[in-house]
Design a protein around this nucleic acid. Structure first.
Lengths: 335, 335
DNA sequence: CAGCCCGGATCGCTCATTAAA
DNA sequence: CTTTAATGAGCGATCCGGGCT
């Protein structure tokens, strides 16, 4: 608990060693908890560290070990992404990396200049590995990332061949099916769906999963905005006036669906049941009525990505793998 | 444009120097664009750098210069923050720092463990400076940040004495006044306000600015949720049935206000005019009708913070100062 | 011969000093 | 004597080979 007396030059390992009456090498071993150190030496060094408020110089350590203890977190923003999702993912990632005492170097990639900059960071030895979030088809970030000599873990299956990649994904198809089955089980017979952008994997897979169950239910795409979903839902009401169940591929879109239903005077859930996807804590519990939604555990996903990248960094020889996380249904007021 | 032939060991400055037929020191001078270098040497080095795909080793450079070329971006999340705002700020910050070729080390501080970790990063020489976002009263991040020996720039006036601090803030009071004046100018006479959390500076200041103009208009607090604002607005409709203008201290709250007005059957803007605050691009243009709002230029704020921290890093002797950015009114469909 | 510990050498860069044009 | 270039000494850690008990 003691602090360096006057915040002059920071103490070095040499200082710690001197104070503990041992050599630099021994002090170093203690800090890196390598075995062959006597109990006495260990205690002396530990005490000296505490007394001096010593913190190892990261640059010096990096120089010799070639490890930075930092990983890049790269978000593609080639198209405007959902704020909720970004905030949520960043929070989860920051927490998981902090727990592992790894620094997070955040890279948001929108322009090709950003991409070049990211590549420089990634190849320049500034980080040990990378977590990549790039759900959109044809994203130039993906080929760049797969060329890297560093451990890379993708969030969600990227477009293109996934051979040799490390991926942590949710079971979007299964989740879509889950939603559809829930609507069916609750007695709905005229079920429709509001889709998202076609070139976003999760959105496409969720819809596919639902259609597997419902074969060929009517679909309108709501793009990625609440208002787009509102319009899509209005169109569906026109096409299928007697509809009684709606699956929206995201909670954000589901809120637009609810807007449209409210405007059309349909009661939820009495006349129409609605199921969303994401269990977005900033949306689902707050709609009126609260939204039934398929939950994907983003924290688990991010934790899985972090675990995997750390494993790769320790080079535990891990074979490329795709980890698929289950989804669950959270029932609230709209079904 | 050429790439290292085989991605073996990365080339060092020594390699570049050898290839250019000069010494390490000269090569270093070229890279740091110091003056006394001949044209010929400059060109030779530049060419060698390109041919070898050389990138300086950051750790080595940091070790000797004691500069990391990284700054911490610290967000307090002691209370759940608005996703929109977080995403938006992170985007702007990332862009501004990337432009300056400074790495961004993101720290989200929620628990006291996070705080301790952040302090370690901040005092451990991992970064050259910090940008701090901590709007809430009594946030423990603030006293910690002000003790730091590093250049620190605050986003928005922190609670407590601001003497000696660098702050870049918006003119929240002026913005609140602007909103109120606009409502008055558009002929509204029974104006009410929906406030935010009392212990958040911006929310409090915006409300104060409006009340300066309106002296003692009825106020209800909506907390920080859309739904809270809905309830606050419902209450105001009860208290002041003939109200014809509403100022909400954020767009997020304003969307709740619109919900309540719609439910109450009031037409906007015919019966009631509404003005929000933030000009949140994910909210204001998408409400129905689109929301008139006071715009604060978050990008300018963040750019100002980055400029300031860089100035401090160059130690241009800059005296502590509070930079206050103007707000503007963006008129849309609700007034 | 263990088990511990020590003193260099080293990582890749910058900077001050010194030497050459 | 001025301008440009080169040499050498670190920055603060890790790790290797060897010495001590």
């Amino acid at each position: 608990m003691s602090v360096p007396p006057h915040s002059g030059p920071r103490p070095t390992l040499e200082d710690v060693a001197a104070r503990a009456g041992v050599s630099r090498a021994t002090a170093s071993r203690v800090l890196n908890s390598s075995p062959r150190v006597s109990r006495a030496a260990h205690d002396a060094v530990t005490a000296a560290v505490a007394e001096l408020g010593y913190q190892p110089n990261r640059a010096a350590r990096t120089l010799v070990t070639r490890r930075t203890d930092a990983v890049a977190v790269v978000f593609s923003e080639s198209e405007p992404t959902d704020d909720h999702r970004l905030a949520w993912l960043i929070r989860a990632t920051a927490a998981a990396l902090a727990d592992a005492d790894v620094q997070m170097v955040l890279l948001l990639v929108r322009t090709s200049e950003d991409l070049a900059r990211a590549e420089r960071v990634l190849t320049g030895g500034h980080v040990d590995g990378a977590l990549v979030f790039a759900p959109r088809k044809g994203d130039r970030l993906v080929p760049m990332a797969r060329r890297l000599a560093l451990p890379v873990v993708f969030a969600g299956r990227p477009w293109g061949p996934t051979r040799g990649l490390h991926v942590v994904d949710h079971d979007h198809e299964g989740g879509g099916a889950l939603a559809a089955e829930h609507l069916v089980a609750s007695g709905r017979t005229r079920i429709v769906a509001v889709g998202g952008p076609r070139d976003v994997h999760p959105a496409a897979d969720r819809l596919a999963g639902a259609r597997d169950v419902l074969d060929a239910c009517p679909v309108e795409d709501g793009g990625s905005t609440r208002d787009g979903a509102r319009r899509a839902m209005a169109e569906l009401l026109r096409r299928v006036p007697d509809l009684d169940g709606v699956f929206a591929v995201s909670d954000h879109l589901a809120s637009g669906v609810l807007d449209a239903l409210r405007e059309a005077g349909r009661r939820v859930p009495e006349d129409v049941a609605v199921v969303g996807f994401d269990d977005d804590p900033t949306v689902a519990p707050h709609t009126v009525p609260p939204l039934t939604s398929v939950r994907q555990d983003v924290e688990a996903q991010v934790a899985g990505m972090v675990t995997q990248v750390l494993r790769l960094l320790r080079d535990d020889p891990v074979r490329p793998r795709r980890e698929i996380l289950p989804t669950t249904l959270v029932r609230r007021g709209t079904t």
